[in-house]
């Protein structure tokens, strides 16, 4: 199957004696939107951190785009095409919107000057406006520094930053956790646009309604292990079922042996 964009085999992460992630086997097809659910401490964020290279896994393999990968850090993952919106916003408070969107990959002139090469503010500004237009993110003034923005606007900048670059895989770790109703809707619209564009997504979320609205498949984590893989478009699955898997009342058939 060549349309598998991401596959993990036996992905494991131990923090000292704590087994945060145990033997996670996961696949994602191109264009597919998958939600990762689970209780706090179930290993969702740990799973994301191993894929994006923020942390180094204890064991297991990650295959991205048909090739086995070993990301030493989030930069390498990004260069390979994995864009991540982290739970803690990775934005610089004192910089404005274009600066943040282009942080670490600025458009520059006079490149012979090395680290002192000149920033092309105009090009970055134009591309920012285009990107915000594309993702339908609404921000009053892009020259405003992030510090003076609401939580929702900040999150939108973080997501626009992710979505404005042609990535092969987007990962969002609880993108709407701290947002109001309208802002959540904006973020969900961005996700729908990604779906239309055929870009694959991994969404970590606690919001049942959101997950059922947006994704094709739900993978449930419990106590560091994957305990269910639910195709919500094909099978008849309700929110109650998912809660059952999250709390441990139910376990997916294929995971019976490993799950506790």
């Amino acid at each position: 199957m060549s349309d598998i964009i991401l596959e993990t085999k036996g992905l494991t992460k131990h923090y000292g004696g704590v087994h945060a992630l145990e033997d996670a086997n996961f696949t994602l097809r191109d264009g597919e939107h998958v939600a990762i659910m689970g209780d706090n401490g179930a290993g969702k964020s740990t799973f994301v951190r191993q894929i994006t290279g923020v942390e180094q896994r204890t064991s297991g393999t990650i295959i991205f785009g048909g090739k086995e990968v070993n990301f030493k850090g989030p930069i390498q993952a990004r260069e390979a095409g994995i864009e991540t919106v982290f739970q803690t916003l990775a934005l610089a408070d004192h910089l404005d919107v274009p600066d943040n969107i282009f942080l670490g990959r600025e458009i520059t002139k006079w490149n012979w000057l090395g680290p002192f090469r000149r920033l092309d503010y105009k090009a970055m500004r134009d591309e920012t406006l285009a990107a915000l237009e594309k993702t339908a993110v609404k921000i009053p003034n892009i020259n405003n520094v992030i510090q003076n923005m609401s939580g929702g606007q900040r999150q939108c900048v973080a997501i626009a930053r992710t979505a404005s670059f042609h990535s092969r895989l987007t990962i969002m770790d609880e993108p709407t956790a701290a947002l109001g109703v309208q802002e959540t809707e904006q973020v969900e619209n961005i996700i729908r646009n990604l779906k239309k564009a055929g870009e694959p997504l991994i969404l970590v979320s606690h919001n049942m309604r959101q997950v059922f609205d947006l994704v094709d498949r739900i993978v449930v984590f419990r106590r560091g292990r994957i305990c269910a893989n639910l195709d919500i478009k094909k099978d008849k699955i309700t929110g109650e079922d998912v809660v059952g898997y999250i709390t441990g009342a139910k376990t997916g058939d294929e995971y019976m042996e490993t799950a506790l």
Partner: peptide, 12 residues
């Protein structure tokens, strides 16, 4: 100076 972690995650 603004957010060291963000800078690191941005590839700086």
């Amino acid at each position: 100076g603004s957010n060291e972690d963000a800078a690191r995650m941005s590839g700086i």
